[in-house]
């Protein structure tokens, strides 16, 4: 091995922004993450031109996967047009030449913050979720070395204790987002702060999901057809948000996860959180030929 064999000709920037050694490290960790579903794998988490906490973990996974034929969709709380989503999407296409899209059906790579699209993802699609806090045990065990030992022992009793306390105090489980879920019957993961509505979409899904926390330098994965079971008591079934009957005031669609928009008169109206689904529904109502793919929820219910 000489210095010459380890170097290469000068280039203005690396394809896909990350340099080759950063990508190799990501690849190694992503393969390990797939091999042990739901288990957090540490990684280096390089610098990217974005502050930690704004999706750098997801960004690094996406940059590693990008190729010119990719079609990339970026979601921020369900919306494609937020500043964060638009900036990440344009950065991704600028450094890779990949196509940008808002359409869940057309995307090969979907990087998302806090939502999983309502349309079912296919076997050839990869979902990359940005994770602020990858450690489900943090609320019950601040020491991460002890938390690691608890993961090793599958010692998750204290997570049930939190849920039990919520039941006692409030009469129902109050965990809103990032509901802890048991993956492959072994590791509890936090599915990133997606609403309870979205967690069942990961169970035995056809697509591959990566969850990556840039600030915390951990990534984990949910391979296709992997069991993802939210922690529940045998006599208290898992409940998603009660949005099945709500109607979007802009598109008229019912049966999906909604954003609540407060009104001046003290009331509120609702609109589809998955903004692209709303756009499609409106276009279709206007008479355009728009294809809406099969959705996970049908008539506001997740088929068993």
């Amino acid at each position: 091995m000489t210095l010459a064999t380890l170097t290469k000709p000068w280039a203005a920037f690396s394809y896909g922004f990350l340099d080759a050694s950063a990508k190799r490290e990501m690849r190694r960790k992503m393969l390990k993450a797939i091999a042990v579903p739901g288990c957090q794998m540490p990684y280096a988490s390089r610098e990217v031109p974005m502050a930690r906490g704004w999706g750098t973990g997801g960004l690094q996974v996406t940059l590693t996967l990008l190729k010119p034929s990719s079609s990339v969709k970026v979601i921020d709380q369900g919306a494609d047009d937020s500043v964060n989503a638009a900036s990440i999407r344009s950065f991704l296409s600028k450094v890779s030449g990949a196509a940008e899209t808002w359409d869940t059906q057309a995307a090969t790579l979907i990087q998302s913050r806090h939502r999983i699209p309502e349309e079912r993802l296919r076997a050839d699609q990869v979902l990359v979720l940005q994770v602020p806090n990858p450690e489900p045990l943090r609320p019950v065990e601040p020491n991460m070395s002890v938390a690691r030992q608890m993961h090793a022992d599958a010692d998750y009793g204290r997570l049930w204790l939190i849920l039990y306390e919520q039941m006692v105090r409030s009469g129902r489980i109050m965990e809103g987002a990032a509901y802890p879920a048991l993956v492959n019957r072994r590791h509890v993961m936090t599915p990133s702060p997606i609403p309870r509505w979205d967690v069942p979409k990961l169970h035995m899904a056809e697509h591959l999901t990566f969850l990556s926390a840039g600030r915390e330098k951990r990534l984990y994965a949910v391979p296709p057809f992997t069991q993802v079971e939210p922690l529940v008591f045998s006599d208290v079934p898992y409940q998603v948000e009660d949005h099945g009957a709500l109607r979007c005031h802009r598109s008229g669609v019912t049966g999906y996860y909604m954003n609540e928009i407060p009104q001046d008169n003290g009331g509120s109206v609702f609109e589809l959180s998955d903004s692209n689904l709303g756009i499609k529904a409106i276009r279709r109502a206007e008479g355009a030929q728009v294809e809406i793919g099969p959705t996970w929820y049908e008539n506001g219910k997740m088929p068993q």
Partner: peptide, 22 residues
């Protein structure tokens, strides 16, 4: 941005390994 031969090859190799393991 256009991937050079090295980048295209290693990306495709990784993708094959990723789907094989998935």
């Amino acid at each position: 941005p256009v991937p050079d031969a090295f980048e295209a090859r290693t990306n495709a190799t990784f993708e094959a390994l990723m789907w094989a393991l998935s």
